[in-house]
Design a protein around this nucleic acid. Structure first.
Length: 571
RNA sequence: UGGGGGAUAGUUUAAUCGGCAGAACACCUGACUCUGGAUCAGGCAGUUGGGGUUCGAAUCCCUGUCCCCCAGCCA
């Protein structure tokens, strides 16, 4: 049985099963309505992509809708910049929320009225305990809490106090509104949780209209209800919040949504904690949220990742309740798979070694035809100039070739892709350092186009660029940001930054690329044959100074062979 | 004697009422190849332990073990 492509496949996971069942029983009147609820306090990353693909994907599959809702209930951490970045990223991934762009802050007045209603129901009270006292009264994981001395204030007093909280009569932290539930509950979330706190802070959308702000549990449950969300999908750590989520809707007698939790994404060699990502940015370990090494969607976009690759990945990792760590190799596989189909091939020499073809006429230039993408004939061909002096990859020559190495070496013949067979006849070295600075080769004019009329075979085919036609380029080689599969695993007294890979960025200048790249569009992606996929940097590349980001290397079988040869030698 | 959740190849996941444990990635072979790419063929490899029920258990029962989350006026 062959695997269906993601679009044909009907994803099956416990959430979709629940939804199918709900549809069958008519639980939500046959409706499916989800939401993606980011807090605008940072940039979206690949972990969010999982949630986005789930929420929007599920809605699409079942003929429902998915809202974009900003969970902006904490003005001290949130900024409008993040809102814009988040919208850009969701769109880039290929999802559309239509007119349904909502904000928890849109509901502040209604949420306030809900709180008033709760007070009237005798289900909420204003508490004067300090934050420290609240903590003490909460008890511990194994011991019950104690009731606040303010727990039994009258409805009238609570109403008046809450109104005065809103009016700004009290300083930050002096009072809270709390739900009156059960201080002895084994679930700490039910021990009279705070639902409103005083925060004299300017909100990015409501400005100074409010000085009290609702807490997540309250705002989220009721925002879902207001939007008539049917299935509220969130991550595992909110599992013990579900009773509270349901409590608010039940007490207020409002629309009941169903919260379902799934495991968040973890990736090897990657950190996906907003708190830690923001540190990388603030401490300058990376150039910003969109540094191509970042697992943020903006970083990945700049790196050359495609939305299709990310969506394919999200479809393959599945949705379950088990804590898990996905191998980053799967992400890279999805990337290569997508890029292989769409990226035009081109020749670029990263670390140039000069080659002179001794028997090729000086001053002569001829054009050879090259295929733009062997995976897609419709992408056509192009003409590439060939001449007497060329650059090849320094790594494609070995003075003393190891076993199984079938590229260029003294006396050996290789094929220059799409051009001629050449043979190395001499090696020029720097007399001081002994470094190889130039190769003298001869070519066989009979092999034009790369075919030998006598049928002789060469093992190696290497890429090249004509020296006089080459364009200079800067190439940024990215590697994983962290050295350890689990970057959080550190010695005593260290933090995750100790696992930062010091070689995660290597900048190469003086790289030589074929002339067709002269007008390369920022953001466009090419395969440098035999090397990898490279994307024109959107920020730093100019026609005069080309800058390429290595998106991902090609699978490198030779590297494996060489490695195992070295290991054999050690034994 | 707090509450909640979870355990299937190295990794991520399937398995409808209890009916042959199936895929993908990774790894290893080989074929093919003007990219040591891509593609194709094959291989390695699994039900958390112990009992029980049953013709038959990943699935049901009993009993262990291990892992994750929760004591923000963050989300």
């Amino acid at each position: 049985m062959t695997r269906n492509t993601p679009s044909e496949t009907e994803p099956t996971d416990f959430i979709r099963e629940i939804i199918r069942e709900d549809l069958r029983t008519g639980k939500f009147g046959g409706r499916v309505h989800t939401r993606f609820p980011p807090e605008p306090n940072g940039y979206l990353h690949i972990g969010h992509a999982k949630s986005i693909c789930l929420n929007f994907g599920v809605a699409e599959e079942f003929g429902g809708l998915c809202n974009l809702r900003f969970d902006d209930t904490n003005p001290v951490k949130e900024e409008a910049e993040y809102v814009e970045a988040i919208k850009r990223d969701v769109h880039w991934l290929g999802y559309d929320w239509g007119e349904r762009e909502f904000y928890a802050s849109d509901y502040f007045e209604q949420l306030y009225q809900y709180a008033v209603q709760l007070i009237k129901l005798g289900k909420a009270y204003v508490c004067d305990l300090t934050p420290e006292q609240i903590r003490e009264y909460r008890g511990t994981l194994t011991e019950p809490g104690r009731e606040s001395p303010y727990r039994n204030r009258s409805v009238e007093e609570n109403l008046e106090l809450f109104e005065r909280m809103r009016a700004g009569e009290f300083p930050d932290g002096s009072r809270t509104l709390r739900a009156k539930i059960d201080m002895a509950s084994g679930n700490l979330n039910m021990r009279d949780p705070v639902i409103y706190r005083i925060l004299h802070a300017t909100h990015h959308r409501t400005g100074d209209a409010w000085c009290i702000y609702p807490m997540y549990d309250f705002a989220h449950s009721l925002s879902d209800s207001i939007e008539r969300i049917t299935h509220s999908l969130c991550t595992l750590e909110f599992e013990d919040h579900r009773p509270l989520y349901e409590w608010f809707q039940e007490q207020l007698g409002v629309y009941r949504s169903q919260q379902i939790e799934f495991a968040r994404l973890n990736l090897t060699y990657t950190i996906l904690s907003k708190r830690k990502l923001i540190r990388l940015v603030q401490e300058g370990h990376v150039s910003g949220w969109d540094d191509p090494r970042m697992p943020t969607l903006s970083g990945m976009r700049r790196r050359g990742y495609t939305p299709q690759a990310i969506r394919d990945f999200c479809g393959r990792i599945g949705v379950a309740k088990t804590n898990s760590v996905v191998d980053v190799a799967l992400l890279e596989y999805c990337l290569r798979q997508d890029l292989n189909k769409r990226a035009p091939r081109v020749m670029g020499v990263l670390e140039p070694l000069r080659v002179v073809i001794e028997n090729y006429p000086e001053g002569q230039v001829e054009m050879v035809e090259a295929i733009n993408n062997p995976e897609d004939e419709s992408m056509g061909t192009r003409q590439v100039p060939f001449s007497r002096v060329l650059y090849i990859e320094r790594d494609d020559f070995r003075e003393d070739p190891p076993r199984k190495y079938f590229r260029l070496a003294p006396g050996r013949e290789v094929r220059l892709r799409y051009a001629y067979f050449i043979k190395c006849v001499d090696v020029i070295k720097d007399p001081e350092t002994g470094e190889v600075v130039e190769l003298r080769c001869t070519y066989d004019p009979e092999t034009r186009g790369g075919y030998a009329p006598d049928g002789r075979k060469v093992r190696g085919t290497i890429h090249w660029v004509s020296a006089q036609h080459a364009h200079d380029a800067e190439v940024r080689l990215y590697d994983r940001l962290f050295n350890k599969p689990n970057p959080a695993e550190v010695e005593e007294g260290q933090d995750f930054t100790a696992n930062l890979n010091p070689n995660s960025l290597q900048v190469l200048t003086g790289c030589k690329v074929e002339p067709s790249l002269a007008g390369a569009e920022p953001g466009s992606i090419y395969q440098f044959e035999r090397k990898g996929y490279f994307c024109v940097d959107v920020l730093d590349s100019t026609p005069e100074h080309l800058v390429f980001n290595r998106t991902v290397s090609l699978r490198d079988t030779w590297k494996k062979i060489e490695k195992s040869l070295q290991q054999q030698r050690k034994r």
